[in-house]
Design a protein around this nucleic acid. Structure first.
Length: 686
DNA sequence: AGCGCGTTCGT
DNA sequence: CGAACGCGC
């Protein structure tokens, strides 16, 4: 055996560095550990079926392809190359690579989405059992989720408190690591690469356009960061209102694939902020705070995903599961196609479809319209974002949609409806954005550009517009939406109260399974990508239709999908709403937020507990240690282990309040919230 | 100037 | 809903 030259306890030998969403050589702790401990086999495993319904969309796959080839050439210049494996099971592929290279160690960086939590835990268990030393690292966050806790050692449930704590932690985020000077390659003579196919013929044409606007890869990410810091960062706070100003950082796809380390971004931006503060430049300091807040939201999305691994499919506020979503695929289609009759919404949806990109403001507009005006189930919208966004990111998008939907403790009120007409004049005062993406409205004067339905007939004629023909009338009026939303909310509260009453009577085990508590399934026969009837063929050699994607390959998650498909909501009659159960009468005064939850949820939670045997991130990590001020050891040989019971605050919440010893996924609404008031008012009148 | 208002905005 | 702003006196 040769000895490790780098010291630091690295044992000599070959290590596998498993790349996932950390496609960079700079500030990559797993790669650095591999380099330190001997020779390196760099591996990327493409196993999209593991993602269940979240098979990456076309543009996201395009990005990944470019980014991987970029990483490969970087690794080649350092002395090795990237091994790529096509797989139905990442862990099996890793074992293959272990066997063909004689590697004795596996290093990787943490991910926090629910699927990765389960998969990575399994990887660690299986490989450790085979005598492989497995170590994992934080490369994606300023602080690990279990490091950031309130004074009582519990996870935060509101963003502001979380972020304030992050910014005042007793120790700084780890400083970024330099890229290795050289990588000693493991023996790859018996380890072959699979050719990865990321696009089919029908997608190639659309993808060709992407290269004009975007340059994936870690060195391009660096350039994007530098360009942003030297320019738009200064004006970030001033320009954030405009729909199409080029003042966003455009870093999000780079960050999603880990082409640039968030810690590096943080350090550079922070230094700049200090510089500006010294010059007394108040506005710039403000801009930086705002930009850092968006970094903070990204952090928070991982934090929430870790603490609430169901949040991508279930509202974090319990009562929202009773909301009678309008299950109307016609609305859904109109929204996707940008034919809702609201110019700002439609322009946004056309831009999204055409480019895979949307300014953050417009994301808020279209998703808010989706949830509040159309009242479609938010998970459909989130899934469409997932399929079409270049920077599709499960954790961030989940947080965004839950925020918009009013299902977070500190999100917007559920009954607030934003009016796209007014937002249009706010974010696109001259109508330039609308005219760019809706050519049929190009000749309409600015006065009417955001509400063509009010325009005099003569004006419309002069602009060549025939409403209902070449541009739609609003599919739902905002006033009608307000009325409908109020009705739906009262139905929701009645259901919540009825369910609560049933729970307190200790009966109704079956209530949760019947209808209202299960999330609405994705529409089965609607391809998310309009132009492709066969959505993702030729990637696996099999023809995959959309519904194929609904079957996750991880058993613990199948139960959720199963539960969804039995939901009665989409089967209900009339206006597509679940009806109030007639045999349940509301007469109890609820004393607090609906922290109670249904049997199905409990069962699902138990599936997780069953699946994840043993704590993934040890309890000491998530509570005691992180609440202390001592610095957590970063590089220990211990792989952090996650488990729902160790990570979920809501767990403790309900245990204390209700004496229920399991893992409820719901949070209490923020005190003082409108919804709590609403709750009382409704239950008094009900 | 300081105060009282309406309006906007909020992760 | 409240805090933070912007206006007019």
């Amino acid at each position: 055996m040769m000895s490790a030259s780098g010291g630091g306890g690295g044992s000599s030998g070959t290590s596998i560095v498993w790349f996932r969403r950390d496609l960079r050589v700079e500030d990559n702790p797993a790669l650095a550990a591999g380099v330190r401990s001997g020779s390196v086999v760099a591996v990327f495993v493409w196993a999209p079926e593991e993602e269940g319904p979240y098979f990456p969309g076309r543009v996201s796959r395009w990005w990944l392809k470019q980014s991987l080839s970029h990483l490969d050439s970087s690794l080649r210049s350092l002395g090795t190359k990237l091994i790529t494996k096509r797989s139905a099971d990442s862990v099996s592929s890793l074992i293959e690579v272990v066997q063909s290279t004689g590697a004795t160690q596996l290093f990787f960086n943490h991910l926090y989405d629910p699927i990765s939590l389960v998969r990575d835990h399994r990887a660690k268990e299986v490989l450790t059992a085979r005598g492989i030393e497995v170590r994992s690292f934080n490369a994606d966050l300023l602080y690990e989720p279990w490091e950031v806790n309130d004074p009582k050692g519990r996870p935060f449930t509101t963003f502001a408190n979380f972020w304030e704590r992050c910014l005042s932690m007793p120790y700084d985020p780890e400083a970024p690591l330099l890229p290795p000077k050289r990588v000693i390659s493991g023996d790859l003579s018996r380890c072959s690469s699979d050719t990865l196919v990321f696009e089919d013929e029908t997608e190639r044409g659309s993808n060709a356009l992407l290269a004009r606007a975007w340059s994936p890869g870690w060195s391009n990410a660096d350039k994007a960061l530098a360009a942003f810091m030297n320019g738009p960062l200064i004006e970030y706070s001033k320009n954030r209102r405009k729909a199409d100003s080029a003042t966003t950082s455009f870093l999000s796809p780079h960050l999603h694939f880990g082409e640039v380390s968030v810690r590096k971004v943080f350090h550079l931006v922070r230094v700049k902020q200090v510089m500006w503060a010294n010059e007394g430049n108040k506005a710039c300091e403000e801009s930086v705070n705002l930009f850092l807040k968006s970094i903070g939201l990204r952090e928070y999305s991982r934090y929430m995903s870790f603490n609430h691994p169901y949040s991508h499919e279930r509202p974090l506020l319990g009562h929202l599961k009773y909301f009678p979503w309008v299950v109307d695929e016609g609305y859904f289609k109109a929204w996707r196609q940008g034919r809702t009759g609201y110019p700002l919404v439609d322009a946004g949806m056309r831009e999204l479809w055409a480019t895979g990109w949307l300014h953050d403001r417009i994301r808020v507009v279209v998703s808010s319209f989706f949830v509040k005006v159309l009242q479609l189930p938010w998970r459909w919208g989130m899934k469409y974002f997932w399929d079409t966004l270049l920077d599709a990111d499960l954790e961030s998008d989940t947080l965004g949609w839950q925020y918009i939907s009013g299902t977070l403790p500190d999100g917007r009120e559920f009954d607030r409806i934003d009016n796209p007409q007014f937002e249009g004049y706010k974010f696109d005062p001259n109508g330039e954005y609308v005219r760019r993406w809706l050519p049929e409205l190009a000749r309409l004067p600015t006065e009417w550009i955001h509400h063509p339905w009010n325009a005099p007939e003569s004006v419309l004629q002069a602009a060549g517009i025939e409403l209902g023909s070449n541009y739609p009338l609003p599919i739902v009026s905002v006033d009608a939406a307000k009325v409908r939303l109020q009705e739906a909310l009262s139905v929701m509260w009645q259901h919540a109260a009825a369910s609560r009453a049933a729970m307190e009577n200790g009966t109704e085990e079956g209530l949760g399974e019947s209808s209202e508590s299960t999330p609405v399934a994705f529409p089965e026969d609607v391809p998310m990508e309009e132009n492709h009837e066969v959505v993702r063929n030729n990637l696996t050699g099999l023809v995959r239709r959309y519904e194929d994607q609904m079957v996750p390959s991880i058993t613990s998650l199948v139960s959720i999908e199963d539960a969804e498909t039995t939901s009665g909501i989409q089967n209900s009659i009339g206006n597509s709403r679940a009806e109030v159960p007639t045999n349940r009468i509301v007469h109890e005064e609820p004393t607090r937020e609906d922290a109670a939850f249904q049997t199905t949820q409990r069962n699902n939670a138990l599936h997780w507990n069953n699946f994840i045997t043993g704590p993934l991130y040890d309890a000491e990590d998530s509570t005691a240690e992180s609440s202390s001020t001592s610095r957590r050891e970063r590089n220990g040989g211990v792989v952090p282990v996650w488990s729902p019971s160790a990570s979920s605050f809501s767990d403790q919440f309900v245990t204390e309040e209700n004496g229920i010893h399991t893992n409820p996924p719901f949070l209490p609404r923020h005190p003082q919230s409108h919804q709590e008031i609403n709750w009382r008012r409704l239950s008094q009148t009900g």
